[in-house]
Computed example of a mutant assay.
Amino acid sequence: MSFTLAVCAEMVHTDLPILERVTRLHHAGFAVEIWDWSSKDAAQLVATGAQFTSMTGYLSGDLTTPDGSADLLRTAEESIPFAQAIGCPSLNLHGTGLGEGGLPDRPLEVVTGDMWLAAERTLTSIARLGERHGVTFVLENLNTEVDHPGTPFARAADTLALVRAVGSPHLKMNLDLYHAQIGEGNLVELIRRSAPYLGEVQVADVPGRCEPGSGEVNWPFVARALAETGYDGVVAMEAFASAGTDAALDRFRAAFTLT
Results as ranks from 00 to 15, higher is better:
residue 113 G to H: 13
residue 22 V to K: 00
residue 114 D to E: 15
residue 130 G to A: 08
residue 180 A to Q: 13
residue 103 L to Y: 10
residue 144 T to V: 13
residue 142 L to N: 01
residue 31 A to R: 03
residue 100 E to T: 12
residue 167 G to E: 04
residue 44 Q to C: 08
residue 96 T to R: 02
residue 67 D to G: 01
residue 36 D to N: 04
residue 161 A to K: 12
residue 80 I to C: 04
residue 81 P to E: 08
residue 116 W to F: 05
residue 112 T to E: 12
residue 215 G to P: 06
residue 247 A to D: 10
residue 4 T to F: 03
residue 256 F to P: 05
residue 163 V to F: 03
residue 193 R to H: 12
residue 95 G to P: 05
residue 47 A to M: 08
residue 152 P to C: 07
residue 70 A to S: 15
residue 167 G to K: 07
residue 10 E to G: 00
residue 239 A to Q: 11
residue 171 L to N: 06
residue 182 I to R: 00
residue 137 F to T: 00
residue 26 H to D: 05
residue 179 H to Y: 06
residue 199 G to T: 11
residue 235 V to D: 04
residue 138 V to F: 05
residue 27 H to S: 11
residue 57 G to N: 06
residue 137 F to I: 09
residue 133 H to S: 06
residue 187 L to G: 08
residue 106 R to N: 14
residue 102 G to T: 04
residue 149 P to L: 09
residue 242 S to P: 00
residue 11 M to I: 01
residue 226 L to V: 12
residue 158 D to F: 03
residue 147 D to Y: 10
residue 203 V to N: 08
residue 51 Q to S: 14
residue 121 R to D: 14
residue 41 D to Q: 13
residue 133 H to N: 12
residue 11 M to K: 11
residue 89 P to N: 01
residue 141 N to R: 05
residue 125 S to M: 02
residue 134 G to S: 08
residue 79 S to N: 06
residue 11 M to E: 10
residue 143 N to D: 15
residue 152 P to R: 08
residue 184 E to M: 06
residue 153 F to A: 09
residue 136 T to Q: 02
residue 71 D to G: 05
residue 232 D to N: 13
residue 221 F to N: 06
residue 22 V to H: 04
residue 164 R to I: 08
residue 91 L to S: 03
residue 138 V to R: 02
residue 194 S to Q: 07
residue 50 A to R: 04
residue 89 P to E: 02
residue 211 E to D: 03
residue 56 T to M: 14
residue 185 G to L: 10
residue 111 V to I: 14
residue 252 F to E: 06
residue 59 L to S: 14
residue 193 R to K: 14
residue 90 S to Y: 15
residue 64 T to P: 05
residue 87 G to I: 04
residue 76 A to N: 02
residue 74 R to W: 01
residue 258 L to C: 04
residue 94 H to T: 12
residue 117 L to A: 15
residue 114 D to G: 15
residue 229 T to Y: 09
residue 17 P to T: 13
residue 202 Q to I: 02
residue 256 F to K: 03
residue 108 L to G: 01
residue 204 A to I: 04
residue 19 L to R: 09
residue 91 L to M: 14
residue 17 P to Y: 10
residue 73 L to R: 11
residue 141 N to S: 11
residue 197 Y to P: 00
residue 70 A to R: 10
residue 2 S to D: 15
residue 74 R to K: 15
residue 204 A to L: 09
residue 255 A to C: 06
residue 117 L to S: 13
residue 82 F to G: 04
residue 147 D to L: 08
residue 175 L to T: 01
residue 52 F to I: 00
residue 246 D to V: 13
residue 101 G to M: 09
residue 258 L to P: 07
residue 224 R to Q: 15
residue 127 A to C: 06
residue 73 L to Y: 09
residue 166 V to A: 08
residue 64 T to H: 07
residue 178 Y to A: 04
residue 160 L to T: 09
residue 42 A to V: 10
residue 212 P to V: 14
residue 207 P to N: 07
residue 193 R to L: 11
residue 252 F to R: 04
residue 46 V to A: 11
residue 57 G to D: 07
residue 253 R to T: 06
residue 220 P to N: 08
residue 5 L to R: 02
residue 34 I to N: 00
residue 225 A to P: 12
